[in-house]
Design a protein around this nucleic acid. Structure first.
Lengths: 148, 148
DNA sequence: TATTGTTATACTCTATAACTATA
DNA sequence: TATAGTTATAGAGTATAACAATA
């Protein structure tokens, strides 16, 4: 391979940016950004509950988690409860509203998948998802999980 | 599919961001950013030569192309020549230095591919690249091309 | 004194608007 | 008057640093 644009990394980077941009455009309708969805997914998956733990899982600054959580709390998607055992810690959890929002986000992702992978057969999509899941695992991305 | 993190779009977005970040980290050593490489690839592929055309192909603001071209010119990677037929137009072209840099970028991309796809067989990588190329074509990304 | 969360500040990236020169 | 390029300005997103509350 003598050319940058034959590489996997280059393909993944360009396509990933477009995918994120288009997903963000759809999420705007429900006042969310991709990172808000990421935070809710961390809660749903039970990967973390205190804000500092969430920051580590998401690999962002703790101050960002404050802003995401503020917004999600305003929307009624999460609740914040002080840990009685350690009152410094804010324990975040999904509300029913949050679960509904997450369901809506899944619908948007599904329709975006149709758009992105319209030229791929069902078998090819499954294969692609499986390979991406393996790459995600290798890269240490806990939110990229194997399709069932 | 009831979950966001089973979608192709979500996988592609997360993995694409990591790929771009890691590629950017390697490019720092030669004072380049991914968009500089993108501009050079546009020139190499002969997709555009005036700055305004380049902005359209890259889907960025013309003012950004000015900054990228300034930097690449400082590095000696491109030259800027006024179009004699229309002295408003700056025609950009790769220099030998630029071609060497692009070759170095390809090497970095190749080594990053090893890191990203270490768990995939050669056949799986070829399959993945081919599917990504089809997605890129569908999304109208001229720089994502079919592997030969 | 160390840690969790919060607020204030600064930096990067990029787009928009204003400007210059050529047509 | 319109267009190519450039410069100036502003906004989004995010990190770092300073601060407050609790341990």
């Amino acid at each position: 391979m003598a050319n940058v644009n034959d590489s996997l990394a280059f393909h993944l980077g360009l396509i990933g940016t477009v995918a994120t941009d288009r997903y963000a455009a759809r999420l705007e309708k429900i006042e969310l950004k991709p990172k808000h969805v990421g935070l809710m997914l961390v809660l749903q998956a039970g990967l973390a509950s205190s804000q500092l733990e969430i920051a580590k899982v998401m690999d962002v600054a703790p101050s960002l988690v404050v802003m995401f959580a503020d917004h999600l709390e305003e929307l009624g998607a999460i609740k914040r409860v002080r840990d009685p055992a350690d009152r410094r810690r804010q324990m975040l959890s999904l509300t029913d509203k949050g679960r509904v929002l997450l369901y809506d986000c899944a619908g948007m992702a599904k329709s975006l998948d149709q758009e992105i992978a319209a030229d791929l057969s069902k078998e090819e999509r499954a294969l692609l998802t499986a390979m991406l899941a393996r790459i995600g695992t290798r890269l240490g991305l806990p939110l990229v999980r194997q399709a069932q």
